[in-house]
């Protein structure tokens, strides 16, 4: 059969598409049908089953902040996934409490997803609630004032526009908060 493709462009085209579609369909269309946790928002009231909590969609202000996060390309340098690696759970943790790993049900409302591929700066999947507004204001103005050695660029225009600043901080405070894995309002002193 493959021999026919030697002299027939139609055959070559058909076979190459058939082979492509086998893997294409099995790895894109089928997985969400098999694994239903991809589409079911996180909700757990039973502490015996792990961290409790409920995933809620972002409000308008937080969504606005998310758009700014996308516009400025924050996601090129900050991932949003605590992987199933011990070091990731420690690094995403806070004050000695290890973070739970990220699960698909925590990202059901994410559009676009912001998992990221490159970790030039730290992962932000559990950053919500760790730093207060004043910290973010100083940090956006010049990251090196708070973190000597940082190579994050300054974003002065985010601080100067009060509405944008409010929105992006509101968004960041939501990150990783669906799972109730540590007390609220625990900002760094």
């Amino acid at each position: 059969m493959l021999r026919k493709a030697d002299t027939s462009a139609t055959w070559a085209a058909i076979i190459s598409l058939v082979l492509f579609f086998i893997g294409g369909i099995l790895t894109t269309v089928v997985p969400p049908l098999v694994d239903t946790t991809w589409a079911k928002p996180f909700e757990n009231a039973d502490p015996a089953k792990g961290p409790t909590g409920k995933l809620t969609p972002l409000n308008e202000l937080q969504l606005q902040g998310r758009q700014i996060y996308i516009r400025e390309g924050c996601w090129y340098c900050h991932t949003q996934q605590t992987r199933t690696l011990l070091a990731d759970t420690k690094r995403s943790g806070w004050k000695g409490v290890d973070s739970p790993v990220s699960t698909p049900d925590e990202f059901v409302y994410d559009d676009p997803h912001l998992f990221g591929t490159k970790r030039t700066g730290p992962d932000l999947s559990r950053v919500g609630g760790k730093y207060d507004e004043q910290w973010h204001r100083t940090h956006f103005r010049n990251p090196r004032d708070l973190v000597p050695g940082s190579i994050m660029p300054p974003y002065p225009w985010l601080v100067e526009d009060a509405a944008e600043f409010k929105a992006i901080v509101a968004y960041m405070q939501t990150l990783g908060r669906a799972k109730d894995w540590r007390p609220d309002n625990d900002y760094e002193e």
Partner: peptide, 30 residues
Amino acid sequence: MGTILWTAFVYLTGNFAVLFTTGVNQANLN
């Protein structure tokens, strides 16, 4: 020929199909 055909479907998946999905499902298509 392979490039032309595969690109068409790969591009449609990555730029249009993703618009109808969210979260991990979208990341998988991405």
